[in-house]
């Protein structure tokens, strides 16, 4: 099991490496680039992402953003993302599994953000969904984007 997972992680690493090279050439580094992974097609999640991704990227101040997605990119339509060099990298579910293996073996590399309600180790942010006042928007803003303070109002997004 370990060998298989290591091989998977290696392939995931190669995929991210070549994606960054293809998208941004040599101009990308950890201090100006963000890699967003979209492995989770949960409709509420993606709706919240569409609403808050622009605000999040402005706060993160990444100059280059690679969106690696196995769930398409329709949810990005109308997301209000400006001033960022964004590259879309569609991939299969199988490839995404490999990318996630790399993400976990790296201990959640800081420049990679996994935009998912499903965490490795079987933990699910979905555990919180619907509990009390928890909504997908709260989960996205506070837990996935890890932002402080109140969720931005529609006027400030």
């Amino acid at each position: 099991m370990l060998i298989k997972s290591l091989y998977s992680a290696y392939m995931g690493m190669s995929f991210i490496k070549s994606s960054l090279k293809n998208c941004f050439g040599k101009g990308a580094d950890k201090f100006n680039t963000l890699v967003l992974l979209f492995p989770d097609g949960d409709a509420e999640l993606l709706s919240a992402v569409r609403k808050y991704l622009g605000a999040y990227l402005r706060r993160q101040a990444a100059e280059k953003v690679a969106v690696i997605t196995s769930v398409g990119a329709d949810f990005l339509a109308g997301a209000g993302i400006f001033g960022v060099h964004m590259a879309l990298v569609p991939c299969s579910v199988h490839t995404m599994e490999r990318v996630l293996s790399y993400w976990t073996i790296c201990g959640k590399a800081d420049f990679i953000k996994n935009v998912s309600l499903k965490m490795p180790g079987g933990r699910n942010l979905q555990n919180f969904q619907g509990k009390g006042e928890f909504t997908a928007e709260i989960l996205v803003w506070h837990f996935i984007f890890e932002q402080f303070g109140d969720i931005p109002s529609s006027e400030t997004i």
Binding site: S5, A9, S101, T104, P120, G122, L125, F143, E146
Partner: peptide
């Protein structure tokens, strides 16, 4: 890394763990 394929679970959801998430918000 092995994502659930092991006979061990963490009883916490916070801290310096690789699999856990921030509570600081």
């Amino acid at each position: 890394f092995l994502r659930g394929g092991v006979n061990i679970k963490n009883m916490l959801y916070h801290g310096t763990s690789l699999e856990n998430i921030s509570q600081t918000p």
